[in-house]
Design a binder for these strands. Structure first.
Lengths: 184, 184
DNA sequence: GGATAAGATGAGTGGCGACTCAGGTAAGCA
DNA sequence: TGCTTACCTGAGTCGCCACTCATCTTATCC
């Protein structure tokens, strides 16, 4: 999920702490947004403040690592839908899942933020595959392009975050978007 | 645009300063987001820090006053479209304008934030009028409800903010949404 | 023009949060 | 088992920022 295998592998306790910190950070930032304090993360991870900074020299690094992990999970999810799912519904299924996930777990904030260009590109590629398959199956209008889908994805996730939508409102809102994508 | 006429009217210089502060705040928060400092607002308004706090006891009050003003402008714009515009295109025209405005001027962030319940309700009402007119003109599917339109509005504005869309991308993205709303 | 009080000023104050470091602890290894 | 050193600790530093207040200025009114 992380650790691109540096020179020496992390010591066992360090690995445990790193994982605890990331888990705590996910919860803390989900509740308090990106302005939540690293001190709170340390507290919840059951770790001293210095330990957080040993693993992530900067708060921004911590946020970035978090986002990277989340993005990779999402991308993996999309990739699976793109190979095993029904071509006609895979794209819609993916958007639906991501919006639900975003609403449940506020951390996906700033999902498409700037400094993750690598992971974002991977996601965009997988979404592109989902789109192509849907178009080949005749389920989505052919003139729709990948960047519109990404923009729509971003928009609906952001919307689901800031407004606190009911399940019903979410479904009806996505239904409008899906109708806009669908070939008649 | 503001001042619900309290007991005594503001002194002339105080009125000028209040206006300068709001104008500066709009620029500052547009550039730096809601985390920009009130000190910077004071500096740009050419006013001492204390003066800002005399007019707005709290940073939150300042933000709220700003949002209220902006919302009122937007609502007035919508209201005009709802009376003088073409019923079939008024709603689409309004969404398009608001998204453009949001992209150009980041301040509309958190447009639909919590503590503005009054002004937001007015906007929602006017949007409801635009929607009804469009539906009566046969331009929008009859089962679409006001809250979906508001949710879509919020989403696309947020999207236009965080992603930095090109004009072309914005048009294509909105086109998808509009197609989803439109009756065939 | 002079009195009066609303308003402006700007050097504080307090608190918070990101980040540091000197010293202690225990993994990993022979 | 003992050594080495990566790692952890947590009190402390530093800077920033919202907010205050004693003092000065000036709009308003007669």
């Amino acid at each position: 999920m992380s650790r691109p295998s540096q020179a020496r592998p992390l010591r066992a306790d360090a690995q445990r702490n790193r994982a605890k910190i990331l888990a705590a950070a996910e919860r803390v930032f989900a509740e308090g947004g990106p302005d939540a304090s690293t001190g709170e993360v340390a507290r919840r991870a059951g770790v001293a403040a210095g330990t957080v900074f040993r693993h992530f020299p900067t708060k921004a690094d911590l946020l970035q690592a978090l986002m990277k992990d989340l993005l990779e999970q999402v991308t993996a999810d999309a990739a699976e839908l793109a190979t095993t799912g029904d071509p006609a519904t895979g794209l819609f299924e993916f958007v639906d899942r991501l919006v639900r996930r975003t609403a449940a777990n506020r951390t996906v904030v700033g999902l498409l933020a700037v400094p993750l260009s690598g992971p974002i590109t991977s996601l965009a590629e997988v979404v592109g595959r989902l789109l192509t398959r849907a178009q080949e199956a005749g389920a989505v209008r052919p003139e729709v392009r990948r960047d519109e889908v990404m923009a729509l994805l971003e928009s609906t996730c952001q919307g689901a975050l800031s407004g606190n939508w009911t399940d019903d409102l979410r479904d009806r809102t996505l239904a409008v978007v899906f109708r806009g994508l669908r070939a008649e």
